[in-house]
Design a protein around this nucleic acid. Structure first.
Ligand SMILES: [Zn+2]
Length: 689
DNA sequence: GCAAGGTC
């Protein structure tokens, strides 16, 4: 293949124009179909395209760069229902780079004799290719090419089995764009307009099918975390010794009911400092290698191991992909199909710093390379894997992500790890039961390659029934169980994946958007909801409960499915949304409370009553104090639980409130409310809440 | 100015 633009690049007629979704795909398709004739690489300015000539025909393979067209606005009012599809570069600054692709299509396509939409086989790919052919070619002379992987065989098969253009998918794709646009633009504008009417000020506010449910989930988590009030339990920590080895022993499935009971047991154990072994068991646990990464797994692991945000990880992975160091990263697949040349890749990787690891892997597998396959799949791409190409220079965070991907890939070919577990049951002289657990790695298996999942080792001695374990030391501890809910970019990403909203390409981006809009904010290592975020959520809830729930996505999916099956037209579905939104937006424009609560949230207006504790808008009165929803809920929760706490900790109310106000395992609003009760000398039993 | 979805 010639690298330079030759005369041939300008002399073709009556050719087949094949549209690919992106430059990388165009290149792969060109290389696969190149066997049909003479292949030449040409350029339209910077954009590469490919020409294949054989006796009878000429094929041009032309890359798009994702969507070149999208719905755009025509006016500034709300409600707005007129949708005009326009080239993205004309109205979206960030998409200006698509102009070259657009110009290439507009200059080459009109001369083609026929067209093939060879974009990814999903509704977005159907729209991408269709809009291009419709704008610059002739959809009546167009066919659809369907391939499941970009490998030579699949591509050649697909090329020889072209289908008619998939108009149903195109219509479903149009509907997806237009529905998202209608809901997003209209509700966003309603929020901004309500705010403007109230304050005469302008700010950027937004709502959407994916961002708004994610904001709602963040708020649910934030409330749960800040109202967290666990039941404490008492534990006895025993340092045991056997055969010179010391290890930790704790009560087995029980705990002292009260502090005084715990103290008595401690005294008893110190007088009778020996435990009898009732039972000792060893077992092996086989842990298979984790599958190769999809984007979500990579984002979670790089957050766990390096503390990178999902967006940062994705940006780095996308650059590594453009440098051809890794395969396509925006994939949900955890599978490594056989069509990937594992052997070649592993061989190439051994030219990098992975040589020793790979020698070990080849020895261990005796050259039989069968990677573990994960459950998750993707319609268009395999899991993320290294290409084997040697990085020119790679360091810092780029190297960290690359290294994660290589090691995860290698470990997929390795053997299961074998963990040795031991469990001992012991009893004291009054027949109370205790336990200790041990964990060791017996065979490393895949952990040799993907070292980031090494378990925490805890060795205990090998014991037999009726062995005597000496008690060295006894400690009492009040344990306040830690909350198991988290609010962070990664936990929101996990949630979006679980409820299946957004896509690989958009989830991290949309999470960042919530911070950019100042709905969410970083406080140290934690994420918090701002007053604005909460007010926007409440306002959207007033407009549509569906829009703050993943149910809207399910609803869209059902409708798109009906369109692609030909049961409804795109216009029927879109018009229905237009009518509904017009009605609800007009109605809510009259609701002054939306603008008012946004103005209060931003401190532009003062609420009628302010929370004594946090100065938020207060809707509750306790004695003479005004409280917001959050601190009022905290107060009820403290009141509900205080009797139990008095019982377990055997202390008075004030001391317990003091503990609650200082203990960092307890939710912020519970701590603040406890402090409020102490400082104002309020007797909680007498309160009506 | 607003969405979500492609991709440089
Ligand atoms: Zn408050």
């Amino acid at each position: 293949m010639s690298k330079n633009t030759s005369r041939n690049c300008y002399s073709y007629k009556d050719f087949i124009a094949l549209i690919a979704e992106k430059p990388k795909a165009a290149e792969k398709i060109a290389l696969a179909l190149g066997s049909y004739g003479k292949l030449e690489k040409c350029r339209y300015y910077k954009v590469p395209y490919y020409v294949i000539r054989s006796d009878g025909r000429t094929i041009l393979i032309l890359p798009s760069a994702g969507h070149l067209f999208g719905p755009s606005t025509t006016g500034r009012g709300v409600p707005i229902v007129k949708i005009v599809w326009k080239p993205l570069w004309e109205f979206d600054k960030a998409a200006y780079y698509t102009k070259t692709y657009y110009m290439m299509m507009s200059s080459i396509l009109p001369n083609a004799g026929s067209y093939i939409n060879a974009c990814d086989f999903d509704i977005e790919g159907s729209v991408i290719g269709y809009k291009i052919i419709e704008s610059f070619g002739d959809v009546k002379k167009a066919k659809r090419m369907k391939y499941s992987t970009l490998t030579k065989n699949d591509i050649i098969d697909a090329f020889n089995k072209l289908s008619p253009l998939d108009l149903e998918n195109v219509n479903a794709g149009y509907a997806r764009h237009e529905l998202d646009w209608l809901w997003g633009i209209n509700v966003s504008r309603l929020l901004m307009k309500s705010f403007k009417n109230e304050t005469n000020k302008s700010i950027s506010l937004s709502a959407g099918r994916v961002q708004s449910p994610t904001l709602a989930e963040a708020i649910r988590r934030w409330i749960e975390i800040n109202l967290y009030l666990p039941k404490p339990f008492l534990s006895i920590l025993i340092l045991g010794e056997y055969d010179g080895k010391r290890f930790l022993i704790t009560p087995k499935n029980w705990s002292p009911k009260t502090i005084s009971e715990a103290k008595e047991i401690k005294k008893f154990l110190e007088k009778n400092p020996v435990l009898n072994v009732d039972d000792y068991q060893e077992s092996k646990e086989k842990v298979p290698p984790p599958p190769a990464f999809n984007l979500g797994d990579l984002q979670k692991e790089s957050s766990r191991i390096y503390g990178f945000s999902p967006f940062k990880t994705q940006s780095i992975a996308e650059e590594l992909y453009l440098e051809t160091l890794i395969s396509y990263p925006r994939t949900n697949s955890q599978k490594l199909p056989k069509t990937i040349n594992y052997k070649q890749i592993i061989n190439d990787l051994s030219k990098q710093s992975y040589k020793n690891l790979i020698d070990t892997l080849l020895k261990e597998t005796q050259g039989k390379l069968n990677p573990v396959q994960g459950r998750e799949d993707d319609p268009a791409h395999p899991a993320i894997y290294p290409t084997g190409e040697v990085p020119k220079k790679i360091y810092g965070d780029y190297l960290k992500i690359y290294d994660l991907i290589v090691r995860r890939f290698l470990s997929a070919f390795s053997k299961e790890a074998i963990l040795g577990k031991s469990y001992v049951t012991l009893s004291d002289n009054e027949n109370r039961k205790y336990k200790a657990e041990g964990l060791v790695v017996m065979e490393e298996g895949w952990l040799k390659y993907y070292t980031f999942s090494y378990p925490k080792i805890n060795e205990i001695p090998v014991l037999r029934k009726n062995d005597k374990v000496k008690i060295i030391k006894v400690d009492l501890k009040t344990i306040w169980p830690k909350i198991n809910v988290s609010l962070s970019r990664t936990s929101l990403l996990r949630w979006m994946e679980r409820v299946n909203i957004g896509t690989e390409a958009t989830r991290a981006r949309i999470i960042e958007l919530l911070y950019k809009r100042k709905y969410l904010i970083n406080k140290g290592r934690n994420t918090e909801i701002t007053n604005l975020g909460y007010a926007v959520y409440k306002a959207i809830e007033l407009v549509s409960k569906e829009l703050i729930s993943p149910e809207l996505t399910r609803n869209f999916e059902e409708k798109l499915d009906l369109i692609s099956k030909g049961k409804y037209t795109k216009d029927e579905i879109v018009n229905e949304a237009k009518e509904f939104l017009t009605k609800i937006i007009k109605e809510k424009l009259n609701d002054k409370s939306i603008g008012k609560s946004l103005a209060i949230a931003l401190g532009i207006e003062k609420p009628e009553e302010m929370c004594y504790i946090c100065k938020r808008e207060a809707k509750h009165k306790v004695l003479n104090y005004s409280l917001c929803d959050f601190h009022f809920m905290a107060l009820s929760k403290i009141k509900e639980n205080i009797a139990d706490l008095v019982n377990i900790l055997e202390d008075n109310d004030v001391n317990i409130l003091k503990e609650l106000s200082e203990n960092k395992s307890i939710g912020l609003w519970i701590r603040e409310t406890s402090k409020f009760l102490i400082n104002n000398d309020i007797k909680i039993q007498n309160l009506k809440v």
